[in-house]
Simulated scan of single mutants.
Amino acid sequence: LLSHFQVKGPNVGLLGFSKGGDLCLSMASFLKGITATVLINACVANTIAPLYYKDMIIPDLGNELSKQKITESGLLNLVDIWKNPLEEHNHRSLIPLEKAQGPFLFIVGLDDHNWKSEFYAHIASERLQAHGKNKPQIIFYPETGHCIDPPYFPPSTASVHAILGEAVFYGGEPRAHSRAQEDAWQQIQIFFQKYLNGKKSVQHSKI
């Protein structure tokens, strides 16, 4: 990232959404020079596939597809299929985010039907504090679903899942979700400006 011509440096910030979120958590935990990390509806455990880093393997959290539900409109609701990372036999899938050097911002949609983002954000907060680290910043958005895109993107309440190949329900009430996208965008700018550029007050993005 530092060698990319569009990266100012010397600090690097990460922004991850969904599966990209736990990948960013892993990068922040194991790589040097990560100054700030933003997670949008992310899990605190490694998901989907095992993660390999040097001589270490973090297994995926695992799921129980038998617990998936189907909405009245025929969409899959996956929120209950993921195993609990706090159960002892799933602990190895937890990402050691307490090793990270920089702060975290968790963006959480309280109507996320892809996975339990609020639950995962609380796990992250408790884990960091248990290791003597500062609490992460967590922003909760009521009636907001999984896909919190930049502002003025149409709210994505459902789409064909890249892995399953089936239509999945993501949640979110359109008006509340749209407002959350607008606010989250500004909060992300403020967070990165503070921890990457050292600016306490920033001009709001005009997007």
Rank of each mutant, 00 (worst) to 15 (best):
E182C: 06
K83S: 02
P10S: 04
Q186Y: 09
T157H: 06
G172S: 04
F140P: 00
G165W: 01
G171C: 07
H4N: 06
I190V: 10
D112H: 03
K54N: 15
I40K: 00
D112L: 03
L65W: 14
L51G: 02
Q193I: 11
N90Y: 09
F30T: 11
F192M: 09
D22Q: 12
R175A: 13
A45M: 07
S205I: 15
K67W: 10
L128I: 15
H161I: 11
Q187T: 05
K83Y: 10
S156Q: 06
K199V: 12
K133E: 05
I207W: 08
L23S: 10
L23M: 11
K194W: 10
K83H: 13
A49D: 12
C43D: 11
K199L: 15
D183P: 01
K133F: 13
Y195R: 07
I207C: 07
E182L: 08
F119A: 02
V79F: 01
L86F: 04
I138F: 01
Q203C: 07
D183A: 09
S93I: 09
E118V: 09
L196Y: 11
H177G: 06
R179C: 11
P59R: 03
M27C: 14
F104Y: 13
P10V: 04
Q189P: 01
M27L: 14
A45Q: 07
